[in-house]
Design a protein around this nucleic acid. Structure first.
Lengths: 153, 153
DNA sequence: ATTTGTGCAAATCGTTTGCATCTGA
DNA sequence: TCAGATGCAAACGATTTGCACAAAT
């Protein structure tokens, strides 16, 4: 018996269907249904598409009054990555962003704030793409549109 | 009087023209022509387009028998960045790559080895690009084509 | 009963910084 | 001369890891 807050989803609007889907995926990946994992999964997937760093997620967990260690947040995020529940977005060499939007899409990146904004893949039309060099497969196309606050000069 | 090897470019094939151009830019940026800077500039620009990390450049300097501290390599690279002699490429959240190719272009990234390969910008044709959100200017379009070794299954 | 996950603190990695000492203009 | 640059080692921030304990199957 621990002092952890209840894991029931009073606080988090995740449908029972989503919840089951989630459990399925964790199980399929051979991950046990542990309290921290369920918890973080709920935080991650409770509202639409999100981009967060480990620290951000850790912060949210604390706000919700849920006790998880930062190390576990990191480990869990990495496991979710491997399992394919998350994708990683590399835009800033000092931070790692995890993206809950699994569909093909791209990003605006506001350099000044570190904020990421989704760009649906149809919003960018690519008509020509080089073929992968001999011996390689192209495993992904990442497009980052960098934004700077408009200069009203 | 130091034990530093000569800075004359016997070892490095930089044309006198390039050399002067380089000095110009350093001077224009208010950077002094110091031994480490000249040295690293030569290593960076001696052959075509390069992608290197600070550690790689440090390694090259050592191979050439030239004494520079790693801290100075970092500082110098950052100064060159500010001056616009280099660009930074963000593809891997654990490493920072510096790119001597200043022209608009994109990259193949071999995840398994960390290798970067230039893709000329004409090789990718983009016909539709979303406009920047209100209040922002689009300052850059970075495209990374991720490569994985071909699976011969 | 096993096996796997967790939390903590210590370790690691790439990068930056403080400061005393040099050095280029 | 003397502002600016260098080198070293210590500081840093983000992430990982080792190990004793706890929880899931």
């Amino acid at each position: 018996m621990t002092t952890l807050a209840s894991t029931s989803n009073d606080l988090m609007d995740v449908s029972p269907a989503q919840e089951r889907a989630l459990e399925q995926r964790l199980r399929a990946a051979g991950l046990r249904m542990t309290r921290p994992r369920i918890l973080l999964a709920h935080l991650l997937f409770r509202h639409g598409d999100r981009h967060l760093t480990a620290e951000m997620l850790y912060g949210e967990a604390q706000v919700e009054g849920l006790e998880v260690s930062l190390a576990t947040v990191y480990n869990t995020l990495n496991q979710f990555l491997e399992v394919g529940l998350l994708r990683q977005v590399v835009v800033d060499s000092t931070r790692s962003y995890f993206d809950t939007n699994l569909g093909g899409h791209h990003h605006f990146f506001v350099e000044s704030t570190g904020e990421l904004i989704d760009v649906p893949s149809q919003a960018i039309k690519i008509n020509d793409l080089p073929k992968a060099p001999e011996g390689f497969d192209m495993s992904g196309v990442d497009i980052v549109l960098r934004l700077t606050p408009k200069v009203t000069d």
